[in-house]
Computed example of a mutant assay.
Amino acid sequence: MPSISKKGQSMPESPIRKLVPFAEDAKKRGIDVIHLNIGQPDIKTPQIALDAVKNNNIEVLAYSRTEGTEEYRTKIAAYYEKQSVLVSAEDIIVTTGGSEALSFGMGAIADSGDEIIIPEPFYANYNGFATAAGLNVIPVVSDIADNFALPPIEDFEKKITTKTKAILICNPGNPTGYLYSKDEIKKLAALVKKHDLFLVADEVYREFAYDGKEHYSILQEEGIESHAIVVDSVSKRYSMCGARIGCLVSKNPDIIKTVMKFAQARLSPPTYAQIASEAALETPQSYFDAVIEEYVGRRNLLISELEKLDDVIVARPQGAFYCIAQLPVKDADKFAQWLLEDFNLDGATIMIAPAAGFYATEGLGKNQVRIAYVLEKDQLKKAVNILGIALKTYKG
């Protein structure tokens, strides 16, 4: 039998989706599975975006330009200007989701065997993108005791070698919900300038900033224009995960020119989805105000309910819609599987994402889980009640 590539064998499985078969089996047994494991918002997609697809009169669904339509990219630049980020349409390449932007970005800045430094825990697919690009992920540990704040800058500097090409952050963070401060971004900016590295920021949760805090983009930081690469997406902002539209943004013309070559190999981003995404840019501020208010309420309820549970430690997210909880179990993977296979409370159980898969350092996060608060408050409260009783049963 022909052998699978070493790269294929080393590609990590998704820690979010590997429990899906157990969840499906539970549902077949009549168990109601409450999903806390995946960041699929339940907020309605803006009607203006859906109507743009429904009401268009396209007769030939043709390729768009490789970098995305000029009209859409011009409107994206106008959107960024409202966020105090000054870029032009030429600084933007539209991609098939933020995932493709990350993949193209890594391919553009690094060769096989190079290194990228990422504070952990981090979005699990960063491991997959890095593996596909032949990059080695070098983790810097952040701590639940510090609410997963940026680790000391000295910890990053210790990890820098001749093979280091970039530092990658997610701001606000998935899976932690931590929002990096302006001061923390400035420290990273100074570091990448000192060592001539790229700073890649996954900013797909930009709008989701709470408690009066404001998101500060690396593109707002002067003096790192040639170092800064931003990855963005419509998925969470407009609850349009299925559109698969994102973008890569950089003022470095060599980055844009190189990413363009990767983009040409896949021809163009999807046309209908660009139409919907362009229309979504006209979404009124009232939509975001209502969404933020809803998520803040959900976060507050979730955190307060989790803090009532014995021996559970939870970080308080300042953005996005995730939190990390530390549970009184030795192995969250086994506990998560047990919840689906062997436990239910009045015919219901929960599906959680074990956090070990969000770490690159072996052994870290074994007793932690990521919870996505993308459910209505009554479901969240029910889910935490199930978790509390499940923990008592499991320990017993």
Rank of each mutant, 00 (worst) to 15 (best):
C247Y: 12
V234K: 02
G223P: 00
C241A: 14
G212P: 05
I218D: 12
V231L: 13
E221D: 07
Q220V: 13
I229A: 06
V230L: 09
R244M: 11
A209R: 10
E203I: 06
V204N: 13
S217Q: 13
I218H: 07
D232C: 06
F208E: 04
S239F: 04
R244P: 04
R206C: 12
E222Q: 11
Y216I: 15
I224T: 01
D202V: 15
Y238E: 05
D211E: 05
Y238A: 09
S239K: 07
R206K: 14
D232S: 09
I218S: 02
H215M: 14
K213G: 07
Y205E: 10
E207Q: 04
A209Q: 05
R244W: 03
G212Q: 02
D232I: 01
V204H: 11
K236W: 09
G242D: 15
S233V: 00
V204S: 15
E214G: 08
G212T: 04
A228P: 08
C247K: 14
M240N: 09
G246A: 08
K213T: 03
H227G: 05
G246Q: 09
Y205K: 08
R237H: 04
A228G: 03
I218T: 07
E214K: 14
C241V: 09
Y238D: 01
S235K: 01
Q220W: 14
A228T: 06
E221V: 12
E214F: 07
V230N: 01
V234P: 02
E203M: 14
L248Q: 14
V249G: 14
K213Y: 07
S217R: 15
G223F: 01
D211Q: 03
D211S: 12
I224F: 05
S226P: 04
A243G: 07
L248V: 15
Y205V: 10
I218R: 11
I245K: 08
I224W: 06
E222T: 00
R206M: 12
E225I: 01
E203H: 14
C247S: 15
F208V: 04
E214M: 13
A228V: 04
E207A: 03
E221S: 00
M240T: 08
E222H: 02
V231Y: 05
G242T: 13
Q220F: 11
I229R: 06
H227K: 02
E207S: 09
I218N: 13
R237L: 12
I229Y: 07
D232W: 03
L219Q: 02
Q220G: 13
G242F: 12
S226H: 05
K236E: 02
I224Q: 11
